[in-house]
């Protein structure tokens, strides 16, 4: 555990597989940037692995100021002990105030090991993060600018907001696909910091005998809330609105085929006859006409909200609530209404 350190950076664990950064890492870079700007600090990323120049550059373009690189051929494939050691050593050394991990299989394997070694707090599977002053109800102490770690819990029946007053760093794993990814800016300045961490053979207790990688799929089936965008969203940029609303609701991001065909988002998010069939508690369709092939994949949802500027769009026929208007105006209003409620 480290002391409360308000100058500490906001960190992201830069998970890579076979030389490619996980998508959620880039999503987290954008979120870390936003949090760091609120706190007036810099963003760091920890990148264990083998030397590859593109990855630090990619991280910097997505908002990172300092990329801490640990180069060691033995780190090519993830294993818990060595990666946890690296994180622990670097956290002790640089005292970041926040450390974020993607809630991937690897992130959820690594983060608790690090938290235990540091005796620091950890919140799993967050769907939203905010900075806010928090008053301890018992001691009446005001803890300034804490990280609010927001996550569904209890089988999705509640949304819990978790904080960590003083056993820092404040650490969380963050669900994939809920934070909007910022557009990369290749001209952003940033620094690559080479770090050395002594790793004896005891930090490589696993022999990886065989590996099999399958194409990634998005977990729409398990989501309690899904916010989907369609052709009406209009652009890849505009699709960030969908991510934002999903984030505010602690939900997953879905899409119609038009959104996928226009490359606003990848195919894994498609809902419908040729995508995933979902039955979430709440399904929000924004800029989706409601073609029968799309409806086939979502009409069993417990509650459906349709947002469309065409009052005659067929999506309204399966909706419980409808808003007729421009989604680019309406979604920010919904996000604001949600945030105001907290």
């Amino acid at each position: 555990m480290i002391e409360v350190n308000r100058q500490g950076e906001v960190w992201v664990f830069a998970e890579q597989q076979d030389g490619t950064l996980q998508e959620v890492v880039l999503e987290l870079c954008g979120k870390a940037r936003e949090l760091a700007d609120r706190l007036g600090v810099t963003v760091g990323a920890v990148l264990p692995g083998t030397a590859r120049e593109e990855l630090p550059e990619q991280l910097i373009a997505h908002g990172v100021d300092h990329v801490y690189v640990v180069n060691d051929p033995r780190l090519e494939h993830y294993q818990t002990a060595s990666y946890a050691r690296i994180l622990s050593v670097l956290i002790e050394k640089h005292a970041p105030q926040i450390v974020l991990y993607g809630a991937t299989a690897t992130g959820r394997d690594l983060a608790p090991r690090v938290a235990s070694a540091m005796q620091a707090g950890l919140t799993a599977d967050c769907t939203d993060l905010e900075i806010k002053d928090v008053t301890d109800r018992k001691t009446k102490t005001v803890h300034e600018k804490l990280l609010l770690q927001i996550r569904p819990a209890f089988g999705g029946n509640i949304i819990a907001t978790i904080v960590n007053y003083d056993r820092w760093p404040q650490m969380a794993t963050v669900r994939e696909g809920v934070m909007p990814m910022l557009d990369p800016d290749p001209s952003r300045p940033g620094q690559i910091v080479e770090e050395e961490v002594a790793l004896g053979p005891e930090f490589f207790p696993l022999k990886i005998l065989q590996r099999h990688v399958e194409p990634r799929t998005v977990n729409l089936k398990g989501a309690r809330v899904i916010v989907s965008g369609g052709g009406g969203v209009g652009s890849k940029d505009g699709f960030n609105r969908i991510h934002e609303l999903a984030g505010a609701l602690g939900g997953a991001v879905g899409a119609s085929r038009a959104a996928v065909d226009n490359e606003y988002i990848d195919k894994g998010h498609q809902v419908g006859q040729t995508g995933t069939t979902v039955r979430p508690a709440l399904y929000i369709a924004a800029g989706i006409s409601g073609a029968v092939q799309h409806r086939a994949g979502m009409e069993e949802s417990a509650k459906i909200i349709a947002i469309n500027n065409d009052p005659d769009a067929p999506i309204f026929s399966v909706a419980h609530y409808g808003m007729v208007g421009d989604l680019h105006q309406l979604i920010p209003m919904l996000v604001k209404a949600l945030r105001d409620r907290r």
């Binding site: 950890l122 029946n157 819990a160 978790i162 960590n164």
Partner: peptide
């Protein structure tokens, strides 16, 4: 180290289609 700061409940019931005005109030 972790403290529950707030808990919000989510519960569901099915109802009919309601039109919501496209405004902040809406």
């Amino acid at each position: 180290p972790t403290v529950v700061y707030r808990v919000q409940s989510i519960v569901l019931t099915k109802e009919g289609y309601t039109e919501i005005p496209a405004t902040e109030d809406g």
